[in-house]
Design a protein around this nucleic acid. Structure first.
Lengths: 149, 149
DNA sequence: ATCCATGCAAACCGTTTGCAAGCAA
DNA sequence: TTGCTTGCAAACGGTTTGCATGGAT
């Protein structure tokens, strides 16, 4: 059983509260329950998984509200979205989570994370060549673990 | 009006024919019509776009057959699949098309291509660190063109 | 009291599937 | 002739939407 990091949660709660206030959205208990659930665990999740975890904990939130809140959390930069090629979108918390990329094992579905400074260098080259402002990127390597017999 | 490169088409036709034969699939006119249509144009396409182009040319193929053939073309490595974050999958021909990555303009939807050798270097590092065999990767930068007023 | 947010269910849309008819081998 | 392939339509699954009810302000 993983307990939530109180300081981290207080911080993201504050960020979210400010975002909601600035954009004229209401502070509803559902929205904070969802934020708390997300920041209570590490790793990736999809909407279904998140919704199930909430309802399992007897916190009844509708799927529609989860989708709505996910949208707000994306805009407030508290989570990021990934599309790894499966049908459903994957999300992960982004506050205090160092920017990283992924390696997906095609055999086991295991998802590893890595960080390589050369990506940032490539990004700067691209920005210069195309005269663009790059806001973000998505990099995933697909492969197989050799030690898998 | 773009005309198909005869030599390229003859080559991919041969590759596809061999793939079908080796895997016990039949050589149907629909499959080759789809292959030809794909290799008649550059750039990215989704299933809907491809299906429309075929039926516009009075070549009536069902969507189901397009999906089926796309699957075979993916397996025979004649096309590759991308998921840029929209709902629908994007594809592009891959034979004689140098491996490249993408830059997507968030304002215009314009899709640029680039190739940077450093990605291959990162890939080799990852393969070594995680003891994996990397089969492919997906890298997309998202940003905005500065010269767009 | 206002009116945005929630919850439910229906709608949506890209993709997959089941099945009868067609055609490659 | 055999049985894989096609085409159609229905099913599927993640996501979005419409609307009545509820609750934040």
């Amino acid at each position: 059983m993983k307990t939530i990091d109180k300081i981290t949660y207080e911080t993201v709660k504050k960020i979210f509260t400010e975002y909601l206030f600035k954009n004229g959205h209401r502070k509803t208990p559902e929205r904070f329950a969802i934020l708390k659930e997300i920041y209570s665990t590490n790793g990736h999740f999809d909407v279904e998984k998140l919704h199930t975890k909430l309802t399992d904990k007897k916190y009844m939130v509708s799927r529609a509200t989860v989708y709505n809140t996910i949208e707000l959390l994306l805009k407030s930069k508290l989570i990021i979205k990934h599309q790894f090629g499966n049908n459903s979108s994957q999300f992960e918390r982004s506050y205090k989570y160092s920017q990283h990329d992924h390696v997906l094992c095609l055999d086991t579905g295991e998802l590893l994370e890595f960080c390589d400074p050369r990506i940032h260098e490539i990004q700067e080259s691209i920005a210069k060549i195309y005269n663009m402002e790059i806001t973000h990127h998505s990099l995933t390597f697909y492969g197989r673990c050799k030690d898998n017999k």
